[in-house]
């Protein structure tokens, strides 16, 4: 395979950059939402397990930001902390707050929402990462191989929770059903590749959206069937597409928390 030309082809480079931002911003926010749960999970074992997942995911975000830094964009920390919401490419799903209340006060987070969001997101991420292992952009393909190893455990973890809660009390089932509905409302842009999507597919960065969606459905199918559920529909045209910089207010407040200390002095070494 010939090496992908990104040095003299600005369109190719723009596509790579866009995709990397989608991946980096997704995991950055996903990890943040996970870390807000720290100390508040349903039991201590879960706290340890899910904080390990948040930590891995922050590690993935760091690797993607690092690839952007290597492409000559700003340094990874500035990219992660300083870009305003209107420059972010993450999906709406990961920016959504965990539930009522700010994590510094006394939040009332919804574990059903956490389980469904994390399971569906992780399943989607795994499909994308599998595709990225064959990306024409080699540095990304290499990172995908590393990320993929950890994803196996993340997916297993959330799948177990998902099945367990849907197999228990009526109360739990109802909460989970409501969570599935809520999560699916925000699922419209998870697989979207944004305005540069066609270019990404054309130059072999990643496979096209509908192929990825189909795989996601196939993967979830046996789990849903065993629980007597039908696979929920992904909204065809989402109200907002995070890949194209459309976001909710939840993202603004998330970024201001994430960058509170960094912004005190962006030139300082912390």
């Amino acid at each position: 395979m010939t090496e992908l030309n990104i040095t003299t082809n600005p369109e190719n480079k723009a596509a790579v950059v866009s995709l990397l931002f989608q991946l980096a911003d997704d995991d950055f926010l996903y990890s943040f939402r996970g870390s807000e749960w720290l100390g508040l999970a349903p039991h201590i074992e879960e706290d340890v397990a899910s904080s390990s997942i948040s930590q891995d995911s922050m590690g993935h975000a760091a690797m993607f930001y690092q690839l952007l830094e290597e492409l000559g964009l700003d340094n990874a920390d500035a990219l992660a902390h300083l870009r305003p919401a209107k420059e972010r490419r993450n999906s709406i799903l990961v920016e959504r707050q965990n539930g009522e209340g700010y994590y510094m006060d006394v939040p009332k987070y919804d574990w059903a929402f956490a389980v469904v969001r994390n399971y569906f997101y992780t399943a989607a991420k795994k499909i994308k990462i599998e595709s990225l292992k064959n990306s024409s952009y080699e540095p990304l393909a290499n990172v995908a191989v590393k990320v993929n190893i950890e994803l196996y455990y993340h997916l297993l973890h959330w799948k177990t929770w998902f099945a367990q809660l849907l197999n228990s009390t009526e109360d739990a089932k109802q909460r989970m059903q409501a969570a599935i509905e809520q999560v699916m409302k925000d699922f419209g842009d998870v697989f979207s590749l944004g305005t540069e999507g066609e270019k990404m597919v054309e130059i072999g960065l990643i496979e096209e959206e509908k192929v990825l969606v189909q795989r996601w459905k196939e993967q979830l199918k046996p789990v849903f069937e065993s629980l007597n559920l039908s696979i929920p529909e992904i909204p065809a045209s989402p109200a907002a597409n995070g890949r194209n910089f459309e976001h909710t207010e939840d993202l603004e407040s998330a970024i201001s928390t994430l960058s509170e200390v960094y912004r005190i002095d962006t030139a300082a070494s912390w």
């Binding site: 943040f32 870390s35 807000e36 720290l38 100390g39 201590i44 706290d47 340890v48 904080s51 390990s52 948040s54 930590q55 922050m58 590690g59 975000a61 760091a62 930001y65 990874a76 920390d77 992660a80 902390h81 994590y103 510094m104 928390t257 994430l258 509170e260 200390v261 960094y262 005190i264 912390w270």
Partner: peptide
């Protein structure tokens, strides 16, 4: 935990996450 999301760099974020996770593990 209050400082986990606010840690001022990716490296510090990873460091403090690992640390707080260890403490829960000790518990």
């Amino acid at each position: 935990k209050e400082w986990v999301p606010k840690a001022p760099s990716l490296r510090r974020k990873l460091g403090i996450m690992a640390k707080v996770q260890d403490e829960m593990g000790h518990g």
